[in-house]
Design a binder for these strands. Structure first.
Length: 558
RNA sequence: GGCCCCGUAGCGCAGCGGUAGCGCAGGUGCCUUUUAAGCACUUGGUCGCAGGUUCGAAUCCUGCCGGGGUCACCA
């Protein structure tokens, strides 16, 4: 660490020093005290460094500041196709383009060369001939000083090669950025049916996640997933706005956390000498805003839960929550159906999307099952016949289930749902009416004191979201908080602190409202048919690799 | 956290007790319409790390690090 700091100071550039490419003396000075644990070029990288020096010594810039571009790869191809259409079999009018992108394939055949460059739109082939362009520039290509992975700019006229591929006949060519570290090599073969077969795919998941930039650079389908993720969130936002809800942002650092049964991360404000929690939900802050007079609010943002990781769990994840005044959970169910249907249509053009071996149909309406019915159907247990926790616990053991002793009744009921029902709910399904003692923010159902107006919805065997007819009776809310504090064992990590300020807000009067929370990452998984949350997060959480640069490790004696 | 599997060249993989191999990429040469271009020659590895067993370990054992799966917990 200390060593690094020294280098940084040394690297401060005096104002008169030029930092232009090829300033060998400057670069050498910076390298002098480079610590051994920093990057050292491997064999392939050293070759490219040597090429870079050679390019510059020939008077070419390797990292120019000014570029020019008139067409994306696909626009260039489309422009030529249009010209061919117009010409109707005759020689099409010349189409001049300047394209820019990353070289993904080179084929140098002496005095003529081919390469594919790729930009965000796709790929286009360049056709380079020594007598079409400046000879010194062509030599860079011919002598392999230009590599796959380099960024280049090419100007020329569109044409078709003998093999029929629409290409740019290049008359001007320029290096835009030299790539020093070669990306994983993936070759593609276009099959007759138009599908693309890949060879030597870059599949190592750990490297893909740790070096997502390389993953994205090489795997177009990964790039597509995150484009779709952005589209999905945009549609969700449009639906929320269409409901007349106001998008807001509430604190991530919270002195009192709550709104969900989850363990928080703890952090500390130095100056204020105050411990703070990273939010586990937005719920309590959002509902306070209804007290303030908004008829509805929503937030899309990050939640943090200090729990295990799995294919559907990441320590930080994106959540949508909304609260709308003057509707109950039936209204929320309608919005839910509408929202997911809109998302599916936006991405797939119809309310259906494949996920694993299933075709999920998002079209409204979805079936609604009470929790009691659902559990009875799958386990044969009518949990209402076992009204106290001990009896229900015994019954679960009797059918071969295993539960930790001493759990609240509602948690046992929830266990039955999670264990026996959840994975069978493939098509979108609402499970409604939950036990009161695990639902401290939901209104009681009219027919029964032990249940509340709450639903969760399940798709592809995954819990996707959670919603209530929100409790707005401050007396009942206070009693629920106290009940939670009493029911949960003192060591139960899910027991949340009582939020007195939230109670105060509710005492001012909160309009009746329906509220909703959904994991956006899981929604993206469903819609894009990705089977782990890590594939819909650009930077999923991974353990750090060992840091040999830490002060302790530098003692060597350890 | 428990259990199971994995970690070999830049990437994809084989080898599983006799001292490390293949394809692609890379290098040299030839080639003015190729497209997984081709042909010839060729470079490249602390076999995750540290111990142990053995005459000998990539290979067997133990521990650690990292990843995946699964169970527990949760969203």
């Amino acid at each position: 660490m200390r060593g690094k700091f020294r280098i940084m100071k040394r690297n401060l550039i005096p104002p008169q020093t030029s930092l232009r490419g090829g300033d060998e003396a400057y670069y050498q000075l910076a390298l002098e005290e480079k610590p051994a644990n920093m990057w050292q070029p491997n064999r392939l990288e050293q070759e490219r460094l040597d090429k870079l020096n050679e390019i510059e010594s020939r008077g070419f810039e390797a990292y120019p500041a000014r570029i020019h571009r008139t067409h994306s790869a696909l626009e260039a191809i489309a422009a030529y196709e249009a010209a061919e259409q117009t010409a109707g079999g005759n020689e099409p009018a010349p189409v001049e383009v300047t394209v820019a992108g990353r070289i993904r394939r080179t084929n140098v055949k002496g005095k003529v060369s081919f390469m594919h460059i790729e930009d965000q739109s796709g790929r286009v082939q360049l056709f380079l001939r020594i007598n079409d362009m400046d000879e010194a520039t062509y030599k860079l290509v011919q002598e392999h000083l230009i590599d796959t992975d380099d960024f280049v700019q090419a100007a020329g006229t569109m044409m078709r090669t003998k093999a029929g591929e629409i290409s740019v006949r290049v008359n001007d060519f320029k290096l835009l950025a030299k790539s020093l570290s070669p990306l994983p090599v993936v070759k593609q073969q276009k099959l007759d049916d138009g599908t693309i077969r890949e060879f030597g795919e870059f599949t190592n998941v750990e490297t893909r996640y740790r070096q997502r930039y390389a993953d994205l650079a090489v795997n177009a389908n990964v790039r597509d997933t995150f484009v779709q993720r952005a589209q999905i969130i945009r549609v969700v936002r449009e639906v929320m706005d269409g409901e007349g809800l106001l998008e807001v942002e509430t604190p991530i650092l919270q002195p009192v956390y709550g709104g969900a049964a989850a363990r928080p991360f703890v952090t500390h404000h130095n100056q204020l000498k105050q411990d703070l929690f990273l939010r586990v939900s937005f719920e309590l802050y959002l509902k306070r805003l209804l007290v303030g007079g908004y008829r509805g609010v929503y937030e899309i943002g990050r939640d943090f839960r200090n729990e295990g990781v799995s294919f559907k769990h990441n320590p930080e994840f994106t959540m949508l929550e909304f609260y709308k005044a003057y509707i109950d959970y039936n209204g929320v169910m309608e919005i839910t159906e509408r929202m997911l249907e809109a998302v599916a249509i936006a991405i797939h053009g119809k309310p259906e999307a494949p996920f694993r071996e299933h075709i999920i149909n998002y079209a409204a309406p979805w079936p609604r099952l009470t929790m009691r019915e659902a559990i009875l159907k799958e386990t044969g247990i009518d949990y209402m016949e076992y009204r106290d926790a001990a009896a229900l616990e015994a019954k679960i053991r009797e059918i071969g289930g295993s539960v930790a002793p001493g759990q609240p009744w509602g948690k046992l009921v929830e266990h039955l749902l999670g264990e026996y029902v959840e994975k069978k709910l493939i098509q979108p399904t609402f499970i409604i009416d939950y036990p009161r003692d695990i639902s401290p923010f939901a209104k009681k159902v009219s027919y029964d004191d032990t249940h509340v107006e709450r639903f969760e919805f399940y798709i592809a065997g995954m819990e996707m979201g959670n919603a209530f007819t929100e409790l707005n009776d401050p007396r009942d809310q206070e009693a629920r908080f106290l009940e939670m504090a009493r029911t949960f064992r003192p060591d139960d990590d899910d027991a949340a602190p009582i939020d007195e300020d939230y109670l105060r807000a509710m005492r001012y009067g909160m309009p009746p409202n329906g509220g909703f929370g959904m994991g956006i990452d899981r929604l993206v998984m469903l819609i894009t048919d990705q089977h782990t949350i890590r594939d819909v997060l650009l930077y999923p959480h991974l353990r750090s690799l060992k840091e040999d640069e830490s002060e302790d490790a530098s003692a060597e004696g350890v």
